[in-house]
Nucleic acid binder design. Structure first.
Lengths: 208, 208
DNA sequence: ACCTGAACACCGTTCAAGT
DNA sequence: ACCTGAACACCGTTCAAGT
């Protein structure tokens, strides 16, 4: 049932995931679903925990930077596959086992690499903020490839008075509308910049 | 009308902002609202543009780092005031004038400080990802001060088998439950780490 | 130019009744 | 243990009719 709900949300968006709708997909009336979950909120809790289980845990046996990098890339990929989940991942009042397990493993990976509790917490917070924020923008952007960007940006630019938004125009022409441009490709750049920062924060901390 | 809709969303959450509800607050039936907006989506477009107008533009006459820092802090504060807006800021297919103006000013501030188009775009993307992602977690966290954290974390910990999530437990006891702890206070730390990274990226770029 | 009643096609959820 | 019809209190939106 959670599986069916997730694939429905993936295909049609979270706004068309209704109990009646989901019942229809499962060949059952909406009210039957209440035999399996307390209410819709409860069902969302379950769905989010499945999403957490899809994200790779940080691998062991590699340095912390590689482990954090791989985990962030995996989280990014999973969230792109389930964009509706993005805003819900950290808002569960009753987090499920996969959620807890995931957070415990990431913190454990950092602590095991010699991070203090304080710096581990901060590093995790920055990394996750970046992953969630980047993916949020990426998956709600009104275009996803340079073709669509050209279309959208072109229409916008036509409506501008000349020189009204010069820097936006420059950005559109020089980057977004260039063939082969994809906003998603920029993910790694920011991730590495942040990992560099964390490396530095860690040295400062252990030297102290 | 946009004002009324915003204050309703601020108070009761976006999920209780209905046309009937908003009509009620304005002493009018729901259908009357359609004389002022095409539909609810159109109204949300307008609301988001008001939110953009509340964020300070990067100040001029200061170095880029101070300007970016102040702008990010202002955006963070505004998004905390209107948490429902967070996920909608970058998803408007038809961005309003305040939205365009804001993005143009930020890019202009960076370009004026000597950033290349490429590095300006990346810097802006990382900063905004961080602001949106951090605020998303912050405002959906099931607790906001150390008292509530103690409550929530305490309840969670009781449900664990001993040693099941050791690093989560450590984090809860050593940080979240400590008096005076507030997740929101961590915002500046990550912001400065990212600004350091951008400073370094900029030097590499101009040296090239 | 603005407002409204009636209507349509939807929601989540409860409850008593069925197998 | 699971399913369902009927019902309740809601949605967004259209449209013809009113001032």
């Amino acid at each position: 049932m959670l599986r069916a709900a997730i694939s429905l949300a993936d295909r049609d968006g979270i706004e068309s995931l209704s109990m009646r709708n989901l019942g229809g997909k499962l060949g059952v009336k909406a009210m039957s679903l209440y035999n399996h979950v307390r209410n819709k909120e409860d069902m969302l809790d379950g769905m989010i925990d499945v999403i957490f289980s899809e994200i790779d845990l940080p691998p062991s046996g590699v340095d912390w930077r590689t482990a954090m990098r791989q985990r962030a890339i995996s989280a990014h990929r999973v969230l792109l596959r389930h964009p509706w989940a993005n805003g819900l991942m950290e808002s569960r009042t009753s987090p499920g086992p996969a959620n807890l397990r995931h957070h415990d493993a990431v913190l454990g990976s950092l602590r095991g690499a010699g991070f203090s509790v304080e710096v581990a917490a901060r590093a995790y917070s920055i990394l996750d903020s970046y992953v969630y924020g980047f993916t949020l923008t990426e998956s709600t952007l009104p275009f996803s490839n340079s073709e669509e960007a050209k279309e959208v940006a072109g229409n916008l630019l036509e409506g501008f008075r000349p020189g009204e938004y010069p820097h936006l125009a420059e950005m559109a022409v020089d980057r977004a509308m260039k063939p082969g441009y994809s906003y998603g490709d920029e993910f790694d750049y920011g991730l590495d910049l942040i990992l560099d920062g964390i490396l530095r924060a860690r040295s400062d901390d252990t030297k102290r």
